[in-house]
Every structure is written in C-alpha cells, then in structure tokens.
C-alpha cells in the first residue's frame, strides 16, 4: 500500500506563555492511498486541529507532514494552494459558506478558484448538487437553508472537484439519520469507485466503524488505533 500522508512527531501549541495550550502531542501516523480513516475522541481532544494540519490548512508547531512523499513545510505556497484547490475536498465543522450567495454559487467556488472552463464548471457543479440531493435547491440562498441542507451544500462543494482526498469534520453532525446515511453512502461510494482517501472526524460510532481504521485521540495524543472488524489489512 502506498503511503500518501506521513506524520512524524507532530506537535501543535496554541497561544503563548500563560495562555499556552498544547492541542497535539508526539503524534505519528501514516495514511494509505484509498483508505478511509476516522478520527474519534471527546470534544476538545484535538480532532479538528489534526484534520486541519493534515489538510495543510495550518502549520504544526513541531514535526513533519509529508503529502505524497513531499515535505509540506518545504512546499511553496503555490503548490499548497493547488493541492488544496484540486486534490482536497473539505467539509468544515461549522459550515463556512457564503450565506448571501446561492447554493449553486457556493458549490461552484472551488471551480472558480481553479479557473475551470465555464462549460465544465456548470456540468461538475450540477453533478455535485445532484449527488448531494440538492438539485432543486440550486437557486436558493445558502443562508436561508436548514442546517441539514447547509451540510449538504458543504458536501457538494467538497466533492465538486473530484478530489483525491476528502477531509470531513463531522459530515453527518447536522443530518437526520436518513440523509446522514445518504451522505455516508456518497462518501464511501467515491472511496470505492475513485479510490478517494477519506479522513473523517466524527462522533458517530456507526460511521467510525465503517471506516478502515479509527484513530482514537485523547488530550491531543493517539491512545489507540483500531481496524475495521472482519477486514484484513
């Protein structure tokens, strides 16, 4: 199996002096191509922090992260932007979207940034909307949607560029079980069909159990890594 993300002795410290807070400690971890990994743990254990570091949205205080063999700290801003734009898909814990723009415009954003050609843009955006079950909501204002629909907009935005990695922070957190199940199907579908690597932060034990591996965090440290039952890896 090919290692696509290699993490060695990762530390993340927030704040300075008295306000210092160590969110991640001595963290080492490998993620393989096409794998689905769940990051689990109590609130405040550092799950989101870890996900942000893996997705190159933030810089570690200490330690190295390699993406496809390249040391992230040595990559140029341009290359990192390109990776985030073309190879990564994100679902953030808070929704993070432009609430006064339409659903369609929100989903289109990564493609706009990528300067995808107009014709392709439209096709890709409509496909993503359809997969997320938002086909007839395209023209609605994003800010006026229900929590569940907002979550779906974020999912659609994450998959619109057919990324190799999807980083999802609580992707089912705001969804009822039926819709949640649909989203899970969608993510694992991409994982199976396209070999998309999934990194999912979740409280949902059911969802975690369906991932190939579960990384258990406590106070910023890995306390255990478990594997999916019944699958040999």
């Amino acid at each position: 199996m090919q290692k696509v993300i290699e993490v060695k002795n990762l530390w993340k410290v927030y704040g300075k002096r008295r306000a210092r807070f160590t969110a991640l400690k001595r963290l080492s971890l490998d993620i393989y191509k096409g794998e689905s990994v769940a990051i689990v743990g109590k609130s405040g254990s550092g799950k989101s922090t870890l996900m942000h570091l893996l997705a190159l949205l933030d810089k570690p205080t200490k330690g190295t992260i390699k993406i496809e063999g390249l040391d992230a700290s040595k990559l140029r801003a341009r290359k990192i932007n390109r990776l985030r734009n073309r190879s990564f898909g994100f679902v953030f814990q808070q929704f993070f979207m432009n609430s006064n723009e339409t659903v369609y415009e929100n989903v289109l954003l990564p493609l706009k940034i990528a300067h995808t050609r107009r014709g392709n843009r439209k096709r890709l955006a409509l496909e993503a909307l359809k997969s997320a079950g938002l086909k007839d909501r395209a023209k609605d204002k994003a800010g006026e949607l229900s929590g569940g629909h907002k979550q779906r907009v974020c999912i659609a935005r994450a998959i619109v560029n057919n990324p190799q990695f999807i980083f999802a922070d609580e992707p089912t957190g705001n969804l009822d079980s039926v819709t949640g199940e649909k989203i899970i199907q969608l993510l694992f579908g991409l994982n199976q069909r396209n070999g998309t690597t999934l990194v999912i932060v979740t409280h949902d034990e059911d969802l975690a159990a369906r991932c190939d591996r579960q990384i258990h965090l406590r106070d910023g440290e890995i306390i255990n890594i478990t594997k999916k039952k019944g699958v040999k890896k």
Binding site: L57, N81, L83, R84, F90, F96, P110, I113
Partner: peptide
C-alpha cells in the same frame, strides 16, 4: 474574514 478564509482554504492565492 470568514469569506477570505474560505477562499484561501479552497486554494485561492494571497495574490489573488
């Protein structure tokens, strides 16, 4: 700030 952050997270360059 949030909109800018989102754009950057999705790969927009500082120059842009």
């Amino acid at each position: 700030t949030r909109e800018i952050g989102l754009n950057k997270a999705l790969g927009m360059s500082s120059l842009k």
